[in-house]
Design a protein around this nucleic acid. Structure first.
Lengths: 216, 216
DNA sequence: AGAATATTTATACACTTGCATAACAACGCC
DNA sequence: GGCGTTGTTATGCAAGTGTATAAATATTCT
């Protein structure tokens, strides 16, 4: 008998994160079914038993993984907002654009999202987490639209604002899905252009400044 | 020992359909993980072994189930087209509307869709099935838009048509998801109204005939 | 009615699953 | 350097998984 495997003790938070990342890898590649404790442990370079040392059970690990990707997605969206500071139109435009280009458009992330959301209907905890994330996103859109309308000198009644937010949120979601599922059908910036163009048509005003004739 | 269970022989196609339906029930309620041969058989009022008499394996049953819901969804949308016959604008309007009301908007169907789509990334058979369904849907939209534009006396260049189809498909998908996941946030016809309104704004023409002032 | 057929049940099997436990080894402390 | 603490491995287990097979029964045909 050769002795047992050598190992290193990682920091607690580091190991936790590694396990979550390994879980997301498994979910992305083989769906929730493929995310068994043994597969996760193997990918994390660890033995299966260790999972129960960091999480009460597999269930909790999955929830932590879901919370992680939700947080990551909203974080990316907010990052897109932080970049361009001044003009509301440019801000909305940048927001839409960022949502429809990598790394937000990503088959891997979509696969994870779909796997978890498929179980959200049966799992109240997942459902609540999703609902919160969705409303946060829509509120973000609504605030942006309000800025834009005010800057354009248009009145922004509440029901109208809500309507805009729902519609714009929908088209971003829809294009996001199309891009993630069949990215090879579209040119690099095609979805982003369509997204921004559609929002312009919905709001009835241009978001991008009219460029000089030379460009594109 | 009491004798074995009594049973009835159902027609072949009937049994197949029952098994598929039972599979969809399990998927909707407990996700793909919950769709075990035993759970499916129990729900179908049958013993587990029978599944292998109608399908080569569990894998094929799942594929058949997915094909079923995909077909059902596009079929429902096409039904809406069959009813309204004449005016292209009314046809497009009815199509969008039907896609954003029950029974197409349905939390159960969405749960099934998400569960399957989550595995589509890893399963080539599911991926192919999805891609075919998606392209079929988009072609339908594109044809509808072409009719509308022609009827409105506008030129319908191919890239423009494609752009419209992608955008309209996206907003239908996005609103569909919102409605399925959080139907209680919206008034009964709210999503349908938003969908039709958005399409009108994108195309730059009205789909519904201008109603007399009394209505609504 | 009785035999032939193939649907359906029942049982078994090899394998995987999540989880429990005990042995072990890496690290901090004196 | 020896020693306790605890992160980590190894092993085992009961329940659940898909599948294979034979026995039993419902249905059809004559």
């Amino acid at each position: 008998m050769q002795g047992r495997r050598k190992f290193r003790r990682e920091g607690e938070e580091r190991r936790r994160q590694d396990l979550i990342e390994a879980t997301l890898d498994c979910v992305a590649e083989r769906g929730l079914q493929g995310a068994t404790v043994r597969a996760i442990a193997l990918r994390a370079g660890v033995t299966a038993g260790l999972i129960r040392h960091y999480f009460p059970g597999k269930e909790e690990l999955l929830q932590a993984a879901y919370a992680t990707i939700m947080g990551r997605m909203t974080e990316q969206a907010k990052t897109a907002l932080a970049t361009v500071a001044q003009d509301p139109r440019q801000r909305l435009s940048a927001f839409v654009e960022a949502s429809l280009l990598p790394p937000v458009i990503d088959a891997r992330v979509f696969s994870q999202w779909a796997s978890f959301i498929g179980r959200a209907s049966s799992d109240p905890a997942l459902a609540a987490a999703h609902r919160a994330g969705y409303l946060g996103f829509r509120d973000e859109v609504e605030a942006l639209v309000a800025e834009v309308l005010v800057a354009a000198g248009r009145t922004a009644a509440k029901p109208e604002l809500r309507r805009y937010a729902i519609a714009i949120n929908a088209i971003i979601d829809g294009l996001w899905i199309e891009g993630c599922l069949a990215g090879d059908f579209f040119e690099t910036r095609e979805l982003a252009e369509i997204g921004i163009g559609s929002v312009e048509e919905m709001l009835g005003l241009r978001l991008r400044e009219p460029v000089c004739s030379a460009k594109e």
